[in-house]
Simulated scan of single mutants.
Amino acid sequence: MRLHQIAHCRTGDKGNISNISVIAYDRAHFDLLRKILTSQQVATRFANIAGGPIERYELPQLGALNFVLHNALGGGVTRSLALDAHGKCLASAMLDIEIPDF
C-alpha cells in the first residue's frame, strides 16, 4: 500500500532546506509510521533531490513525523530555477512511498 492511505503531508521551506511533515489520519497508525518511515528510507526516496543530511523529528502528541531535508531546494526560493522552488510537490513524492500492508 502507499503512504497516502494512512497519512497526509505538509511541506515548508527555509532557504535551501525543505521540511515535510507526515501526519497519520488515525493516531493508531503513528507507531507504524514511526517504525517504517526512517530517515534512511526518506533519504533513498529523495536521493536525487536532497544533497545533504535528512533529520527526523517525532511529534507523538500530533501523530506526526517531521523530516528536514538539507540542501534540497536548488539554493532556495530566490536562487532556484526549479518550477517548485518552495518544494510543495515533495509531499506528493513522500505520500507515494510504498509501505507494508498492516
Rank of each mutant, 00 (worst) to 15 (best):
E98C: 10
F30V: 05
I54L: 07
A64Q: 05
F30N: 06
L83W: 13
K14G: 11
L95G: 10
D26G: 11
N71P: 00
L3K: 06
K35N: 15
I23Y: 08
D13R: 09
A82E: 07
L33E: 07
A24E: 00
P60K: 09
G63C: 10
C9K: 00
D84Q: 11
D84M: 04
C89L: 14
L65Y: 08
N19W: 03
H70T: 05
A43S: 15
Q5Y: 13
K88C: 12
M94N: 07
D13P: 13
I36E: 15
D13S: 04
L83S: 04
T11C: 03
F102P: 08
P60A: 15
P100C: 10
L73A: 12
D101H: 11
V22T: 10
S18W: 05
I49K: 02
D101A: 12
S92C: 01
A82H: 06
G63K: 03
M1V: 04
P53I: 13
P60C: 10
R10T: 12
A91H: 01
R45Q: 15
L3M: 01
R45Y: 01
G63W: 05
A50Y: 06
L59G: 01
F102Y: 03
L3V: 07
I23P: 13
N66K: 15
I6W: 14
I36N: 10
I49D: 08
T44C: 06
I6P: 04
C9G: 14
L32M: 14
A82S: 04
A28L: 00
L65R: 02
L65G: 11
A85G: 02
G63T: 02
T11D: 01
F67G: 02
I20T: 00
G51W: 05
P53R: 14
G51P: 05
Q40G: 02
A85D: 14
F46C: 01
S80Q: 04
I20D: 08
N71W: 05
G74P: 00
M1K: 09
A47Y: 06
Q61C: 14
R27F: 08
G15K: 04
H29E: 14
H4R: 15
Q40N: 08
V77R: 09
D13F: 01
T11N: 04
S92W: 02
A64E: 01
M94E: 07
